[in-house]
Amino acid sequence: MSLEQFKNRDVSDSGYYLVDIDAYPEKGFDKFKRIVARTFRGELFVGLWVVMREMIKFDIHTVQYPKEKLPVGPRYRAVHEMQRLWESGTERCIGCGLCEKICISDCIRMDTKIDENNRKVVSEYTINLGRCIFCGYCAEVCPELAIVHGGRYENTSEQRAHYTDYQDMLTPFDMALNGQVPEYPGFGAVTPHEDERVKSTPLAY
């Protein structure tokens, strides 16, 4: 179907036809007859029977939230997760500060320092989810696929401070080591055909 068809405002020869509808009853008796016909046709009981049948079958299609939750799409942007590397379980975050810089609601803050191996480590990392607008910029800018948007969309709490705990966001260490964390497909992940685009560095020595 092309756009042209939608733009065509001439309805005279484009397959439109009038629906066959009975004439509206004019007289009082005709109205009465229609009411009787509608009442005793039994359509009411068709509906009631469906409800009855489903109730007896106990095959309930309603999602039993909060006991049951629907899976969200991989590109849904819910509460952030901090990823670890597969093999070593090392935190992926290198502390480059790009998420902090790009955040338009200024809710990310991190402290970094030099460790004993002369590497940069993140000593503190907070996201104020009370301010976060889940725009996804942080996940998009992250060069290490460290910060991603997870699927946990419930963020109600009595305390705003509960929104900022890094440990809640960080993938558990044992899960990462046991390979229980799948390669993240969600928001901020590399696109599937990325391998074809990478050019190798000459190593001719």
Binding site: E100, K101, K113, I114
Partner: peptide, 12 residues
């Protein structure tokens, strides 16, 4: 500077 190293980014 060893004291400054990795504690902040220039743009911040």
């Amino acid at each position: 500077s060893s004291d400054f190293q990795y504690s902040a980014n220039s743009w911040e």
